[in-house]
Design a protein around this nucleic acid. Sequence first.
DNA 1: CTTCAACCTGACCATACGGTCAGGATTGGA
DNA 2: TCCAATCCTGACCGTATGGTCAGGTTGAAG
Lengths: 210, 210
Amino acid sequence: MTAQDRPLRRAEIRRERESLILKAAEKVFAEAGFGGATMQLIADMAGLPKANLHYYFATKEDLYRQVVRNIFEIWLHAADSMDGAAGPAEGIGAYIDAKMEISRRHPFGSKVWASEVMHGAPVIQDYLETTLRDWTEGRAQVIQRWIDAGLMAPCDPKHLLYMLWATTQHYADFGHQIETLNGGKPLSDKQWKAAKDGVKAIVLRGIGVL
Amino acid sequence: MTAQDRPLRRAEIRRERESLILKAAEKVFAEAGFGGATMQLIADMAGLPKANLHYYFATKEDLYRQVVRNIFEIWLHAADSMDGAAGPAEGIGAYIDAKMEISRRHPFGSKVWASEVMHGAPVIQDYLETTLRDWTEGRAQVIQRWIDAGLMAPCDPKHLLYMLWATTQHYADFGHQIETLNGGKPLSDKQWKAAKDGVKAIVLRGIGVL
DNA sequence: CTTCAACCTGACCATACGGTCAGGATTGGA
DNA sequence: TCCAATCCTGACCGTATGGTCAGGTTGAAG
């Protein structure tokens, strides 16, 4: 017991605290933007003294950077759904499913990401130019191959990707607007399914695979 | 001359200054967010002393409110393209064209709007609940009528509208990301046309009118 | 038990921000 | 020409914010 727990105790506390702070930060950054967010607000949200945040994250920008990186990771992992798919119907369908699920489960993260990009990507510009660019080129090639093989209607793969990003992330980023237009109530399970199916139906039919 | 110019002079100056300030504010709010924007930055951008801004707009929030309202107006006017259309191909096609044009010509405005909604629409919530809701209901009915008349494939009109908003506004809100993935260069005239045509092709085929 | 590093935090500081205001300049009607 | 209204702004103020730090607490290795 002691022999196994003790060595982990310190590391655990650190991981837990960091995670707690990051979660609170994600929410506050999403709701107030980087400029509108304050360390005090994040501290209150996390139930910790402000000075404690500065113990784990030197500056507000460091904390923000970490939040953005985490989201980027989740974002990229959604790509796995697209890999190893037999064709566009399966691959793109699964990708839409995955991204809609992310919009539902990580709405704050999606907003932070949107905000970061809208402001000119001051902290993740290098990621855009390396990781994201490579990822995009790769997927575009996959789509192009599907087109060449006659598995789907011809289109510019990049614009198709933009469309997928836009439509799926819209449900997170503009969730408040959608909620308002839904009578002030969040989308129910059924409505989320309808949204997902609706997006898939139009996109898949739009690229000629339905 | 004097009789006609003089009475306008004062009003003209006022209109020009207000417009100048609003334009600068739109850009700064778009690039820094409400919280990150400062009156000093806006003043510098407009080439005016900070105190002058406060002469025309009592508070930062007043200025912001005006910026958001202006964008909302432009946004709603795009709806005119959809009105009086014979069918979905014409109506929705024209609406996409109009919204893509707005994304190109008013990228700052689009970002401010996105930011406002993402942060829970603190200053235009009432507009969302009245004007936007009415507008949306109206258009949804038009689309439903097209569906009932067999002019397009069945779908939830609201989700179709969300898709149109998402895809078109994405080119403004995520313009920086698109630019980065375009080799760091803004979309050319040809690329904008390609984007517009690409979106229209997928959406129109997606609702079965191509 | 001792020791040391990691962890924690109340109190504090310099700065930058939104906003104010007194007083000056300009305009235009009488 | 005079005067009142409008326009303009440098200097100023209170506050809130990001960040610091000295000094205390806790955990665990020896």
